[in-house]
């Protein structure tokens, strides 16, 4: 197959025949053991089976599920689509009022959390605060994160502010959400602060500014868009979280939910669910729009410094080797989960 003047590039005379004896590089490598991987999978499987039996589930219940979904689904749909006479219109306004109360609870809760989270975020950022402070603040934050909202509500806020919709209940719910938001908000903000570009920090330190000036002019412009995005995420999470507090007596949509479910009034249940879905999706859309605006520029916060283009260039990390992939889960995503 070799042509007389094979154009095979400089320094390529006899490529087809190996010129050296075979060595280790030419031998196929032994297959690495997959024992650990297989054991891990086996463990997950065993845990799953143990959990299935441990939970004591009754699979017979699943058989009836489709039937009851259809049955009750029809009842709910009938409730949603029935002609809105005075009583039904009353159901709708009652649902919207309750849902808006939930939004208000979530907003106040997020504000309370946000208020504390910014200073605590700075104290919990390794590049901003001394080691002892850092350790103590981090520990306190992780304890706060471990406590579910309902515990704050039951133990402190409900007795402090009272129960019921419209009365003290809503405030109690908001405060419980606020306190439990502090943990995650501060943690996410501290991570954002730790990821700031060190260049502006260095230059402002070099030009003799003190800690406060450095924070104001070198750190805040960089992190503020991300911080606002984190607050908004938490607002979305808090709307959902406020529901469970409502069931406990903290007002909002949760209180209404437990009332209508308690009475098994399926038409009202349908209405409440539709209202929840509509309002939540609307708030999510608005919040996502603002978040996008804040992070990717636009007029909003035009003085907020360069928005971070990409999550990948999150500061100098030891594994900035282009061949090594960093965690592909974008930071924004982790915040989205409202960790």
């Amino acid at each position: 197959m070799s042509t007389p003047n094979l154009n095979a590039g400089p320094g390529s005379t006899s490529q087809t025949k190996p010129r050296f004896a075979e060595d280790a590089l030419d031998r196929r490598p032994v297959r690495p053991s997959k024992l650990r991987y297989n054991l891990g999978m086996l463990a997950v499987g065993i845990i799953f089976i143990a959990a299935v039996s441990g939970a004591g589930m009754d699979f017979g219940a699943l058989l009836n599920l489709p039937a009851s979904i259809i049955q009750y689904g029809q009842l709910m749909a009938a409730g949603v689509f029935q002609a809105p006479d005075a009583t039904v219109a009353g159901y709708w306004t009652q649902s919207f009022d309750a849902m808006f109360e939930s939004v208000a609870i979530a907003w106040v809760g997020t504000m309370v959390g946000a208020l504390f989270s910014l200073p605590l975020g700075f104290l919990a950022a390794r590049n901003m605060s001394p080691l002892p402070v850092y350790i103590v603040v981090r520990f306190v934050l992780s304890v706060i994160r471990a406590v579910p909202e309902i515990i704050f509500a039951i133990a402190i806020m409900l007795p402090l502010f009272g129960f019921g919709s419209g009365g003290g209940g809503a405030l109690a719910g908001a405060m419980a959400l606020g306190v439990s938001s502090i943990g995650t908000l501060s943690k996410l903000i501290s991570e954002a602060i730790e990821a700031v570009d060190g260049g502006p920090l260095e230059s402002s330190r070099a030009s003799g500014s003190n800690q406060m000036q450095m924070i104001r002019w070198a750190v805040m412009p960089q992190v503020m868009p991300e911080v606002i995005a984190i607050w908004l995420y938490r607002f979305e999470v808090n709307i959902r979280a406020s529901a469970i507090l409502g069931v406990l007596g903290a007002g909002g949509i949760g209180a209404l939910l437990s009332t209508v479910f308690g009475a098994r009034e399926w038409d009202r249940i349908g209405i409440v669910l539709v209202v929840i879905i509509v309002v939540t999706m609307l708030v999510d859309q608005i919040s996502a729009f603002i978040r996008h605006r804040v992070i990717h520029g636009g007029d909003l916060r035009s003085d907020g410094g360069e928005p971070q283009e990409d999550d990948d260039d999150a500061g100098p990390s030891p594994e900035n080797d282009p061949r090594v992939e960093t965690d592909p889960a974008p930071q924004e995503n982790r915040a989205a989960a409202g960790l």
Partner: peptide, 16 residues
């Protein structure tokens, strides 16, 4: 996603 966890719980408790 827009239905909160407690909403789902109430629904399924009512269903089954």
């Amino acid at each position: 996603r827009s239905i909160p966890d407690v909403g789902w719980a109430l629904l399924f408790v009512a269903f089954i």
